[in-house]
């Protein structure tokens, strides 16, 4: 185990973190997912030693670093506001952690260039930091941290204030950094980042971790309603099951389900990726077929979300290719179909 958080608790005014347990293996890309204000940043700052915890232990490579000095922890934090030193140039910022490390001038220069190249900021090295964009500052902060070769990299909402294009670029960079062997703990409120980057994810709510595990498992088998809602599953409805294999939603629409637990009331979720949309009715094994109207088309990074009104609003995810092939447009009619086995029932 590389980084182990053992029963961490802290009370800060009205806010508290309760019994946080988390384990990161070497090479993990672990995403801590939660709304703002749930304590994600506080947890990162506790690991980095910037905030003193009330109880619990932090173990890094089998060494207890709970009370270790900030500068000796070997965990590097990149803040959401980047915290690039405004009075130093880009190069001086990256060189900052290298000074006083008994390195020769040449070694320092070569390290600066290595990490400037990795983060694609070589052209900015001699610039001041005052006029850099958010994306550039983020890269400077990353290069400055990576040059220290931290055992574990802590990222606080690294993509939050970037535009779509930069987000994509930076995601690739973070993937590259992780693939090079850096263990990453990344805090975000955006489930797409978790899906895009992580191999493991922990969902935080109200100062507690309410579910953690491999990303796929957490997203496909949310432990409760909150996780299901939060992890971005849009098709989440209250349903009455009557007869038992029919889910009645808002008294309007009936969906065939496989209600093995024979429950009478509950929630159902349908993953947008598992819904088929077509221009005309198609005969298939899908037991649920509805005619509806496309009311909105929302572009995402690699695919599109179509909101279709079938009596209830349902979210369908399709690829860019499909969108252009079938020429789906807003306000046009379409058929949606999905199998009853694609529906998850949460009591």
């Amino acid at each position: 185990m590389m980084l182990k958080l053992n029963n961490i608790s802290i009370k800060l005014g009205d806010f508290q973190l309760k019994n946080i347990d988390l384990e990161l293996e070497r090479g993990d890309y672990y995403v801590l997912l939660g709304k703002s204000g749930v304590g994600k940043t506080v947890l990162l700052e506790i690991i980095a030693g910037l905030i003193k915890l009330d109880s619990g232990k932090i173990i890094l490579n089998n060494i207890d670093i709970t009370h270790e000095k900030i500068q000796k922890r070997k965990v590097g934090i990149v803040f959401q506001d980047y915290s690039v030193f405004p009075h130093l140039s880009v190069k001086q910022n990256i060189a900052y952690p290298l000074k006083g490390k008994k390195l020769t001038h040449q070694q320092i220069e070569s390290l600066i260039h290595e990490y400037a190249e990795l983060t694609n900021i070589t052209h900015l090295l001699n610039r001041g930091t005052q006029k850099l964009s958010g994306g550039e500052l983020q890269r400077v902060a990353l290069a400055r941290m990576l040059v220290t070769k931290p055992e574990c990299l802590l990222l606080d909402e690294p993509l939050a204030s970037l535009d779509v294009q930069l987000k994509g670029d930076l995601r690739n960079l973070l993937r590259k950094i992780n693939q090079k062997g850096t263990t990453i703990l990344h805090v975000t409120h955006d489930y797409e980042e978790a899906i895009a980057l992580s191999n493991k994810v922990a969902v935080m709510h109200d100062g507690e971790i309410i579910q953690k595990g491999f990303t796929k498992e957490v997203f496909q088998k949310p432990a409760n309603e909150f996780v299901a809602n939060f992890t971005g599953i849009k098709n989440f409805f209250f349903a009455e099951f009557s007869p038992i294999n029919i889910a009645r939603i808002n008294g309007k629409i009936e969906i065939h389900v496989s209600n093995h637990d024979q429950i009478k009331n509950g929630k159902i979720i349908i993953r947008g990726e598992e819904i088929i949309i077509s221009e005309n009715h198609i005969d298939s094994s899908a037991t649920n077929n509805f005619k509806g109207k496309i009311i909105q088309i929302i572009p995402y990074f690699s695919n599109f979300e179509l909101i279709v009104d079938i009596g209830i609003e349902i979210s369908v995810v399709i690829s860019e290719d499909s969108l252009f092939k079938f020429k789906f447009k807003e306000n046009s009619e379409a058929w949606v179909s999905f199998k009853s086995s694609a529906i998850k029932i949460i009591p």
């Binding site: 900030i70 500068q71 000796k72 965990v75 915290s83 900052y96 006083g100 220290t148």
Partner: peptide, 17 residues
């Protein structure tokens, strides 16, 4: 900003530096 000082500490600098 205190955060800049914390960032510097986190980069391995001593408090006096």
């Amino acid at each position: 900003p205190v955060r800049l000082e914390k960032a510097a500490l986190n980069l391995g600098a001593s408090p006096i530096r």
